[in-house]
């Protein structure tokens, strides 16, 4: 049953993405200054929002784990963190491709890029820490503490990087923030299927995590004899 729901959801997400791609390339005109590459923003930005939401949920479920000591929340925290990392990476890569086209360089120490990179490193550390702890209960507890620390760090990172860059000459001036309504709508229209995909991935990861825990427990039962 659950499996069917997940397959159904991902099907819906894929159909919507296809539809959005069609609209993007056929209906929407090229952006005046940037040309066709502009369309990458319809993935670049929603993916970043998704990653941020993931960070929020990771912190929330980590706190919930520490309060309830229910490993379900720990499984949710890992799942959300991993998926968030993947979407963060997608954000970085799409940003780099765009940068190569528009700025002519793969990487600019732009505040947003830099902040995203630091956040990726923070949460990659979370996964590394987890992999080094054997006892699932201890792993959940220590990882939850790290996740909370990381979450408090994220806004500080974002703001401080922004300050840092405003005091130094920026490599590229960020274009005006105005966007045409049709573009704007597409941003949200595309966010929906991306979020849906994230939800499916999180559900699958949580299930894996549960099965993994069961196997681990069975192994310990086996050692008892």
């Amino acid at each position: 049953m659950r499996k069917q729901v997940l397959i159904g959801l991902s099907g819906v997400a894929l159909l919507l993405l296809l539809r959005n791609l069609y609209v993007m390339f056929v209906d929407l005109p090229d952006e005046v200054q940037q040309g066709p590459i502009f369309r990458i923003i319809f993935f670049h930005v929603p993916v970043a929002w998704t990653a941020l939401l993931c960070a929020l949920f990771a912190a929330g479920s980590s706190v919930t784990y520490l309060v309830t000591k229910n490993l379900k929340y720990d499984a949710f925290a890992v799942a959300v963190t991993e998926v968030g990392l993947a979407f963060g990476a997608a954000n970085l890569v799409s940003g780099m491709i765009w940068g190569r086209q528009i700025w002519g360089i793969w990487w600019a120490w732009d505040p947003r890029l830099t902040s995203m990179l630091i956040c990726e490193l923070l949460y990659a550390g979370y996964l590394m820490l987890r992999s080094a702890i054997d006892d699932p209960t201890q792993r959940a507890r220590i990882a939850a503490v790290l996740s909370i620390f990381a979450f408090f760090d994220v806004p500080i990172v974002v703001f401080s990087i922004k300050w840092w860059r405003t005091q130094h000459p920026q490599p590229v001036v960020w274009g005006g923030g105005k966007m045409e309504p049709s573009y704007y709508n597409m941003l949200f229209a595309n966010w929906f299927p991306i979020l849906l995909l994230a939800v499916v991935m999180i559900a699958i990861r949580m299930r894996q995590e549960r099965i993994h825990r069961e196997v681990e427990a069975l192994r310990r039962y086996a050692h008892e004899f």
Partner: peptide, 30 residues
């Protein structure tokens, strides 16, 4: 804090800098 969190881990010495430096970036900038 992170020294306490990683104290029982294998690879403790390697783990600490990897976890700690990204976290400290805003502080170091200041």
């Amino acid at each position: 804090m992170f020294s306490a969190m990683t104290v029982n881990l294998r690879l403790r010495e390697l783990m600490l800098p990897v976890l700690v430096y990204p976290m400290m970036i805003p502080l170091l900038m200041g």
